[in-house]
Simulated scan of single mutants.
Amino acid sequence: MIVPLVLAGYAAAAVIVLPRLLSWGEWAERAPRLALGVWLASCASAVASAILAALAAAVPPSVVAHGLAGFFQACAAMFSHGAVPAFPGLLAALAGAGLIAARLTYCTAAVLVMAGRERREHSDMLNLLGRHDGELDAVVLDHEVPAAYCLPGRQGRAVITTGAIQSLPPEQVAAVLAHEQAHLRGRHHLVIAIVEALVRAFPRLPLFIRARSEVVRLVELLADDVAARRHARIHIAGALVRLATGRAPAFMLGAGGETALTRVRRMLSPASPLGRRERLAGLAAIGALLLGPAIVAAFPGVTALLAHHCHHLSIF
């Protein structure tokens, strides 16, 4: 029972400790893509540990060593004869793992369905009120408030208001639309949907709450960096200043918003990127977060399997 306790203890500690560790320093602003991977891997690690803890409690190492097929056959035989399962707490452990997976699946589907409905309704509105500008490769919406955002989906579209076009010089309009196109190409709405589903599935847990706010911030930083590859940072910063008060509709990604002013500072005074060692350390952390729970869960079964074969070899 050591492995289930280790996995469960890690899952409980991770949702409290990891948000504090990952929020230390300004490394995320220097490598937003890597930071996104670390936050998502941390969330996946905590959920996987909870599920694997239940499965490890339900399936003894000897069962893993001799094959799961024989285990399921034995269970079927016991239930068919009305026998009580030989492993105490088996059904409760399996039910716990299934409940966690089912809860997350349901909330993910709910978030995707709700977001899809909102986007379809907004798309219908754009078809009626907006007009496509081939030169800008965006939908222009008649509205006096300067704003720019993207409508994700299979036929994703960048949207900009006439207020933004009139108040921004052409180079800033091009920069902000490049920002929105970066959101569409990167499918950032799906990343945000993942953390939103985690918050809904497991509310009030610090890791998922902080991950949601950080992921929303990091996708904006990442889109800024992609736009900065082709447009001057001063133009992106100028557009962000003018669009800071603009609000994107629900389930959309906008260039303005609460993070705009901090992103202006980042565009004007960019920090040095992470070094090679720091990036390798970040990639190693992602690998450890993703593979660690599986390795811990499989270790007893692999050990039992090796011990079983070594015993037979010693006989011969």
Rank of each mutant, 00 (worst) to 15 (best):
L5N: 06
Y10N: 08
A14D: 06
L18D: 04
L22F: 10
W24H: 14
G25M: 07
R30K: 13
R30W: 03
L34A: 06
L34S: 00
C43W: 00
A46R: 02
V47F: 05
S49A: 14
S49M: 03
A53F: 05
F72L: 15
C75F: 09
M78V: 09
A83H: 12
A86L: 15
G89R: 07
L90A: 07
L94W: 10
L94Q: 03
G96N: 01
G98N: 09
G98P: 03
A101P: 03
A102E: 01
R103C: 14
A109E: 08
R120C: 09
E121D: 13
S123H: 12
N127L: 14
N127V: 11
D133C: 13
V140Q: 02
R154V: 14
V159H: 05
P169I: 11
P170W: 07
P170R: 11
A174I: 01
L177S: 02
V199G: 05
P203M: 08
R212T: 08
L218K: 03
V226Q: 13
H231P: 04
V241F: 02
T245M: 10
A248T: 08
T259H: 14
L261Q: 12
L261D: 05
T262E: 13
R266C: 04
L268D: 09
S272R: 15
R279G: 02
A284N: 00
A297K: 02
G301R: 00
F316I: 09
F316S: 09
